[in-house]
Amino acid sequence: MTVTGPDVVTLRPEPDDIREAVRYAIKSGVPYTYNRMDKDAWRRVARIARGKVNESLIRRFAESLGIRAGTQDKSYRQHDAFDFTFQGKRGQVGADVKTFHVLTQFIEAPRSPFSFDSLLSGVDHSMAQWHLFFPMLVPQDYRKHKEVYVFAVSVEAKPDRSAKPVLAYPWAAFPDSAAERPLVDPDAIKAREAAGDGLRVTLEWPAGMPGAGNAVYERGGQARQKALPFADAAQLSDAGFASFLAIQLDDAAKDHLYRSGQAMTLTAQDGDQPAVTSQYDARRFREVFPRQDFALHLVGWIGRDEFERIARPLPDGAPCYFYPPRLDAQDSHAPGTKTANRYVLPGVLKPIATLTEV
């Protein structure tokens, strides 16, 4: 039995899924996540938040099938791969979830918005219609194989700033310059904690700042947060921070910075080291999770042995729907796939609802 359109399962997150994912992403994303894609801090945090939301959705779906997903309870400071294991017909099974992400706002012709018909079009690597080619990819140099591959596609709509945010503080800015690096360097954090010393941090904002804000930092080996008293003061000072992770704002505060052209100022003193002073204007604040229309489509699964038998090579740089070519000289994205992969087409996968048959 192979996948057809009705077999694809669409899942959408609950507000609590999003809140918990963003909390986790902020405290783990900048200091403790390897920057394998050489992305700036907010992009790393955004990627982690989407991954954590997807984990929650997949775990809940597995439980609806009677599968209890086994995951490892790790500190946010440790590498956090999604270890999805369950009890199959032949005993304990490890599943490797491969998710491809589609940003609707960047879809341009000849690509069309994601649809199940396009997903199951059957267009292969040898055909010219790259925009209808949906390869289910596994890197050729991948070394952490499990018994089963599960493939999914997450899709988020074009941002709608008029939509009500799920998060109390939808906007976040992170220490992301070379000068700010000591604030989030994991070795420096450990040294401060071992010595019992910490950062002294002062955060200033324009007088009369509306709305609400939040500071995220570490102290005593834990991530903590502190509300910023915009209505009562123009600054907040504290000491004993092991790190300073993020500033968060609600819509009113972010809009005020944008309209006024003003900035918040962060000053951090680490012992007798020179103070680090940074400006946080509106441009530094980004949303790390969409306000509406985030969906995860569970396409299907395939056993590793069968994948190894039928998968075809896809060369580094080959275009497909997920990794389009560069269509004109002004495109700034890197064209095509980034590494050499092997792939199968979605139509050969087994329906996700049959995962219990492994």
Rank of each mutant, 00 (worst) to 15 (best):
P210C: 01
E180F: 04
A152D: 02
K164I: 09
A168M: 11
L137V: 04
G198P: 07
A128E: 14
K144L: 10
V93T: 08
G196H: 12
E156F: 08
Q225K: 14
G211T: 05
G196Q: 09
S154E: 11
P229M: 02
G198E: 08
A227N: 12
N214C: 15
V138I: 10
E180Q: 15
V123A: 07
Q222K: 14
E147S: 12
W130G: 03
K164W: 02
F116T: 12
P206I: 04
D117F: 04
P135H: 00
L137Y: 04
P229E: 02
A157H: 11
V93I: 14
A231P: 10
V155D: 08
D187R: 14
A168H: 11
A179L: 13
V166F: 05
A163K: 12
A188R: 15
D232F: 12
M209T: 10
V155Y: 01
V155E: 10
P113E: 11
F151T: 09
V155N: 03
A109L: 12
R219S: 13
F116K: 15
K226W: 10
R200A: 15
K190T: 10
A215D: 04
A194E: 15
Y149K: 00
D187Y: 08
Q225S: 15
V166E: 07
E108N: 10
E204M: 10
P165R: 00
H131T: 09
D141Y: 07
D197F: 06
I189L: 07
L103W: 10
V201R: 01
P186K: 00
A223W: 01
L199W: 06
G220Y: 01
V201N: 03
D141T: 14
R219Y: 01
A173V: 06
G196C: 06
K158F: 02
W130V: 04
D117K: 12
A212L: 11
R181L: 14
Q140A: 12
T202D: 03
E218S: 13
S115F: 06
K164T: 13
P210F: 03
P135M: 02
T104Q: 15
R181W: 08
E193Q: 15
G122W: 01
A195S: 12
D141H: 10
S115L: 08
D176V: 03
Y149T: 00
G198S: 10
M209P: 07
A227I: 11
L132D: 14
D160S: 11
P139D: 08
G220R: 05
W171E: 07
L132R: 15
W205M: 04
D187S: 15
M209C: 09
A168W: 04
Y149H: 10
A212T: 11
A168N: 13
Y149L: 01
P206A: 06
K146Q: 13
P186H: 01
A178L: 14
L120W: 00
L120S: 07
G196L: 11
F133K: 02
D96W: 00
G221T: 01
A188S: 12
F106P: 07
Q105T: 09
V138N: 07
G122D: 05
P165K: 06
A173E: 08
S177D: 11
F134R: 01
V150R: 05
D141K: 11
D185K: 08
P182W: 03
G221W: 05
P165G: 06
A191D: 12
D185F: 03
K164A: 13
H145E: 05
G94P: 02
P186E: 00
P165S: 06
F133N: 07
Y217E: 03
V97E: 00
G208M: 05
L199N: 00
